[in-house]
Design a protein around this nucleic acid. Structure first.
Length: 423
RNA sequence: GGAGGAAUGGCAGAGUGGUCGAAUGCGGCAGUCUUGAAAACUGUUGAGGGUCACACCUCCGGGGGUUCGAAUCCCUCUUCCUCCGCCA
């Protein structure tokens, strides 16, 4: 959530910035300002009542000590008046505070100045492209056909034991997936990220911390028997590790990587675009998460982009990088780069990574701060990215590496798979 | 799952109704000394709200209660520890 201070001190720049998101923020911001003033005025009044009550209590104590019981008892009358008053003020204050919070939750992150205006994914700005798109010929198959041909993924089995969108990977494909996970983790570790294994269930507080709650609970699976959620991404548990934390300036950079399955309830549409591995309820992903000094976060973002590039380069997959436009930018993100791999057999780009800087938006909810040079506590910046999401990388490899003899295994993965051809 | 015990500042650990935002030690920071460092000594050192700055207010695991007044008493929840049971 946005910092109140930013909204209080705003000179109209915010409204302008939110236009890129096609959002008329003026009424939202005005509402927040109004509620903030209400809250503060209630707080001031409550503080005054409590101050009087505190000092009376002290006097009463002293009077009792001196044995002036009558005087003390006389003062008690005033105290109980104050108590009533503080009780009702406190209730109003609680209401005002939660109204204010609710109003703040409605405001998305401020887009970075480099974010292009636009309404949908067609307005995203391509900033980089690399790799040769293989020529496959007419016999080329999309990955769901390849999965059948070589008996690699069983979607029906998944339906049988769970439901649609929960595929079962078999044989060499399962092995290939395991190889990719190990390879990604190794690359991330090499790049300075510390590997973590984290729980795949999180509590409510964690959902709030990274912004899945209160609005997007429909996207997460919730347990019926306990107030826990299956994680939609490793971002949630990993970033929340640092909730309610004050880092030291020397703790930067904080860099973690984690492999987890990801669970998404989102129904999605049906048709070619969600066939096969394109859209699933459960998939695997290796995530990278950073916490940075505000002065360094964009440098860090660039570093993450470069890092993902080197992985795709090694896998020899044709890819491009998009800078998301305001209309496509996630609610909590200030700047996001999407990586897409070209699938020749599907003749379309597949999103395989999303790298974002959240600036202080998540940190504000998380109360993730650091002590700066002057020893003041300030909010840190959080960033994360996929390095990488498995299913579409797998699809890209299957489709782009297919030959008459079978599916070749990318060079860098052979040490992990132990075989060089799936057939 | 059963029986006990515990939860206090970065850490350790006092504090059982007012003089407690909280002793003491360690750690951190600043200074004295030193060519420099260490040691020693001195000072300083929680977070949030509020204010031009003070004042003032809140916070001793979470929530509720008793009381003029709660870290301290009561209820409740959560978590941790010990013992027993079960189990990968």
């Amino acid at each position: 959530m946005l910092q109140l201070q930013v909204i209080r001190e705003d000179q109209g720049d915010l409204v302008k910035a939110f236009k890129k998101r096609n959002l008329d923020a003026a009424p939202l911001l005005e509402n927040v300002k109004k509620l903030d003033e209400e809250r503060r005025s209630l707080q001031t009044r409550l503080d005054a009542v409590l101050a009087e009550s505190n000092s009376l209590s002290k006097s009463i104590g002293e009077l009792f000590k001196k044995g002036e019981v009558e005087k003390a008892n006389a003062m008690k009358a005033r105290t109980s008046e104050l108590k009533e008053e503080s009780k009702s003020l406190n209730e109003s204050l609680g209401q005002a505070a939660s109204d204010l919070e609710a109003a703040l939750y409605l405001i998305p992150n401020v887009p970075h100045e480099s974010v292009p205006a636009g309404t949908s994914d067609t307005d995203n700005e391509e900033i980089f492209r690399e790799g040769d798109i293989p020529v496959l010929g007419e016999h080329a198959l999309p990955h769901w056909e390849l999965a059948k041909k070589y008996d690699l993924i069983d979607f029906e089995w998944g339906v049988k034991i769970t439901g649609s969108g929960f595929p079962v990977y078999k044989g060499k494909c399962a092995r290939l997936q395991r190889a990719l996970i190990a390879y990604f983790l190794d690359k991330n570790t090499e790049a300075g990220y510390t590997e973590l294994q984290v729980p795949h269930l999180v509590n409510e507080a964690s959902g709030f911390g990274t912004g899945q709650l209160p609005d997007k609970e429909g996207q997460m699976y919730e347990l019926a028997s306990d107030p826990l959620f299956l994680i939609p991404t490793a971002e949630v548990p990993v970033t929340n590790l640092m909730r309610d934390t004050i880092l030291d300036n020397s703790d930067f950079p904080v860099r973690y990587t984690a492999y987890t399955p990801c669970f998404r309830r989102e129904a999605g549409s049906y048709g070619a675009h969600v066939r096969g591995l394109n859209r699933l309820h459960q998939f695997d992903k290796v995530e990278i998460v950073r916490v940075e000094h505000p002065d360094k976060s964009y440098e860090a973002l660039d570093g993450m982009v470069e890092h993902v590039k080197t992985i795709l380069r090694e896998l020899q997959l044709p890819f491009r990088i998009l800078r998301l436009c305001g209309g496509d930018l996630g609610f909590t993100s200030a700047l996001t780069y999407d990586f897409e791999v070209f699938s020749t057999a599907q003749d379309r780009w597949l999103e395989i990574s999303s790298v974002s800087n959240f600036e202080t938006y998540q940190a504000n909810r998380l109360k993730l701060r650091f002590r700066d040079e002057d020893k003041k506590t300030r909010l840190a910046h959080t960033l994360n990215g996929s390095a990488l999401a498995l299913p579409r990388v797998l699809a890209g490899i299957m489709e782009n590496y297919q030959t008459e003899e079978g599916i070749r295994v990318p060079e860098v993965l052979i040490p992990y798979t132990g075989f060089d051809m799936i057939n």
